[in-house]
């Protein structure tokens, strides 16, 4: 059985402009010891879906199920959920400065985290554990730095302290929401390294939420590509990177600068749709270079390719060649600046 099984998750908010469907029927599974990468742009619902699972979203209508170790997190009472949150499922967020309390020492915050879940642990024991954790995530002179305030830590150290805190109770699942987005690449490399090492050592499952396909390529075993609140494509990492089926997944990969070439980039035309008034049928249809008649009907996640874990919410044929033939002419050049050139 998978560690976490999310089935048909829907999250919607009532706004003055109408109902906003942030997540529209999301399903995925996370296996123990594996990393699931969730990739998507802003507004794709990647963060709000995990926050909803953790009971951290207020004022939303949530439906579906999220079975963690066989128990549904969505129907659980808040007391039971609180016991799981932090202890069984750890979380790391993007901005480590606003996730740490500026008035309390880093060590104190880790100790509090440990004792909040098990008050029988003595303060001394918890402190020893805090030092151990900081050392584990590579904080130099952990026994001294444990008494520092968050502002005395650099950005990378803060994020590592957050990881230490999330790992304090040895959770089965770690949800990392853009954990390295605010960091420099060199520090990002260190943080990803720490996460990988911890996973190897403790067998923690990780959900890595990010917009950075490079990070996904580095850490994920399986990948879910989200757009406008729904899964566009899912599959093993290499399948997504080398055998993507969905035009959105393909478009994301194509829009990245090639390594060493300075050829013109191939952007995805247009902009993501408003979640209040989604286009009829496939949400990607207005931007899709392959769109055809059938796309006004919403495609379910269909099996494509020979691998049974590869699914794509697209009506296009599974065969790559047949697909290529259906692509419209590549987007024409920008129809502007003629007047400016004349000047």
């Amino acid at each position: 059985m998978a560690l976490l099984e999310v089935e048909d998750l829907r999250v919607s908010f009532a706004t003055p402009d109408g109902q906003l469907d942030a997540v529209r029927g999301l399903s995925f599974t996370v296996e123990s010891g594996k990393t699931l990468g969730i990739v998507g742009e802003s507004g794709s619902g990647k963060s709000v879906s995990t926050q909803a699972i953790m009971g951290l979203v207020r004022g939303a209508r949530i439906s579906g199920s999220a079975l963690f170790d066989g128990n549904d997190l969505l129907t659980m009472d808040s007391e039971a959920l609180r016991k799981i949150r932090g202890a069984e499922i750890g979380m790391i967020f993007q901005d480590p400065l606003s996730s740490l309390h500026p008035y309390y020492r880093v060590g104190w915050q880790i100790i509090e985290m440990i004792r909040a879940h098990d008050s029988s642990i003595a303060k001394d024991t918890a402190r020893t554990r805090a030092v151990e954790l900081l050392r584990l995530v590579g904080i130099p002179q952990a026994e001294n730095r444990v008494d520092d305030f968050p502002h005395q830590f650099s950005g990378g150290m803060r994020q590592r302290a957050m990881i230490a805190m999330a790992m304090a109770l040895n959770p089965k699942l770690l949800i990392a929401d853009e954990p390295t987005t605010a960091l420099d690449v060199t520090v990002q490399a260190q943080v990803l390294e720490v996460m990988k090492r911890l996973q190897e050592e403790f067998g923690t499952a990780i959900i890595m939420i990010t917009h950075d396909l490079g990070v996904i390529a580095e850490v994920a075993d399986d990948v879910v590509v989200m757009y406008a609140g729904a899964v566009m494509e899912e599959g093993a990492r290499d399948t997504i990177f080398y055998d993507a089926h969905h035009p959105y997944a393909e478009g994301l990969l194509l829009s990245l600068p090639g390594y060493g070439t300075r050829e013109r980039l191939v952007p995805i035309a247009g902009q993501p749709p408003s979640l209040i008034s989604l286009p009829e049928g496939c949400p990607f249809r207005p931007r899709c270079p392959y769109a055809f008649d059938r796309c006004t009907e919403t495609p379910p996640l269909l099996d494509v390719g020979d691998k049974d874990d590869h699914g794509s919410a697209c009506w296009l044929p599974a065969d790559r060649k047949a697909r290529a033939g259906m692509r419209h002419q590549p987007a024409t050049k920008r129809p502007v600046a003629k007047r400016a050139a004349k000047k």
Binding site: T186, A189, L192
Partner: peptide, 22 residues
């Protein structure tokens, strides 16, 4: 070497120089 490349096969053979400290 710290830049993650969105190409898993290229990443595998790559030696990464992880700098110590900040």
């Amino acid at each position: 070497s710290a830049v993650p490349v969105p190409d898993p096969r290229k990443m595998e053979g790559r030696a990464r120089i992880v700098l110590a400290g900040d």
